[in-house]
Design a protein around this nucleic acid. Structure first.
Length: 145
RNA sequence: CCGACCGUGCCGAACAAUCGCGCGAUAUGUUGCCGAAAGGUAUUAUCGUGAGGAAAGUCCGGGCUUCACAGGGCAGGAUAACGGAUAACGUCCGCCGGAGGCGACUCCCGGGAAAGUGCAACAGAAAUAAACCGCCGCUUUAUGCGGUAAGGAUGGAAAGGCGAGGUAAGAGCUCACCGACAGACAGGUAACUGCCUGUGCCAUGUAAACCCUAUCCGAAGCAACACCCCGCAGAUUUUGGUCUGCCCGGCCGAGCGAAAGCUCUAUGCGCGGUGGCAAUAAGGGGCAACCCCUUAUGAGCUGUUUGGUAACAAACAGCAAAGAUAGAUGAUUGUUCUCGACAGAACCCGGCUUACAGGACGAUCGGUUUU
RNA sequence: UGCGGCAUCGCCAAGCGGUAAGGCAACGGACUCUGACUCCGUCAUUACCUAGGUUCGAAUCCUAGUGCCGCAG
């Protein structure tokens, strides 16, 4: 399944200003509940709730080749997270690359994302083992698309 | 063999497994969506295909598009030996001149300073104009007058260079050689070269200062440009339309729920914030070509032959395939080697410039050794 | 992506090819019981983004690069 990316600047501004933030080794993750999730769900042909994801890679990290490589790695890591774990849907997620992300592998980013998801309580209902302890911290939700 | 030098229609790690992305084709599309239906479409599956030599810088030239445009001139800009190539160019090829190298070869913003104007600090007697010292002559013997550019000193630049004659001392004043300029002849399409004759040679540099000469140039750029859609409320009204308003994770309100919370709300408020996603929302075209055939188009690509020293041209044959739109080429694991540089298409071409690990091929030069 | 502009001392800045003004700040001194204001001096040999070139001579002219900024229905 494909994601609709965040394309508008005001959404990024909103997420930076109002969203909750977690800083990891290679990335910074901002999360905000999507107000338009239900509308998007109606428009979506499959009638699924989805997350809108924005990736931010600044010019500071390098030239175009380096930046597009980082973007691909971030995308791959997020995709892995979404397929392997059960993630809350209907959120605005912005992932910003830090300097060290240039030399990171997608598995490193994946561990970072797991950490961030735990901190931001993104996991949907109890997943087999690991997430049980995180479920203690997070408030359980029963919300299906 | 060693050391150089030049060039390229050259290459720019490879393989396997699992997962994943864009585009195209085919199938699927009953169960999702639109539709009265026909049908279309989401989806899914299979197959094919998917960054560069510089994709970069945006420095030139063109195509394409819109706007402007009777014609001419001025202003402004670009180029600069000569001949060719090209759609065009500031590019390329050949050649001339100059500079460098033993050589292969490399480098040169290489028109005009005798059309005119400007500038040339400091130093120096003097900077386009000459007498400070010196040398020589004369006399009224002194801060005198005249001659003189050979010597000194300054400078980036000081009146072609050097030798001999000549002279009071000197001076192209005279002569030889070299240089410069002009003319004739020969060669070359030409720049120019060679050779002969003549002219004592009225004059520095700077045109990447203004300028002059010759040639060329309308402007803006795919966020160009055209096409579809173009809402709701209020006011006005000739019913075509026109004008105004539309922001917000603030508050208030409504619905669901046991609660946490979730959902809805332009047309309520105006305490507060803000001048915002282009008031809002949403597209497809421009946009990417060689196939079954036909026609047309594209400065298209590859190969062969012919012509040309070459750039290149002509003829013939062959050729599916990057085309995104917050932006596709990837991720993980393993193996191998030479251990991987610079670097990511964004309307499309021709160049230039800049960056770059390593390798391949071809031509040439110098040295050494052997035959 | 396309188009355009700028770079001078710690900051703001002027600059007709001839040896880089000025102001603020800083430092030292004077004035004052002390501080501020004011006055004097220093900030001077590397303050002209970098590298080549033209020129006798370049902050200025030319070429290439670097960094920063702006604009686009």
């Amino acid at each position: 399944m494909k994601n609709i990316a965040i394309s508008e600047n005001h959404l990024y501004k909103k997420v930076y200003a109002k969203g909750s933030k977690t800083v990891c080794k290679h990335i910074v993750v901002y999360v905000l509940t999507d107000y338009h999730a239900s509308r998007l769900q109606r428009e979506n042909p499959l009638k699924k709730r989805i997350n809108r994801v924005g990736l931010t890679v600044s010019t500071r990290l390098g030239k175009a080749v380096v930046r597009s490589r980082v973007r691909r790695i971030l995308r791959a890591a997020y995709q892995k997270l979404e397929t392997e774990r059960n993630i809350k849907k209907g959120k605005l997620i912005v992932i910003t690359a830090r300097d060290s992300a240039v030399n990171a592998k997608s598995t490193d980013i994946y561990t970072d994302l797991l950490f961030a998801a735990k901190r931001l309580s993104l996991f949907d209902d109890a997943f087999p083992k690991k997430t049980t302890e995180s479920a203690r911290n997070a408030r359980t939700e029963n919300e299906n698309g």
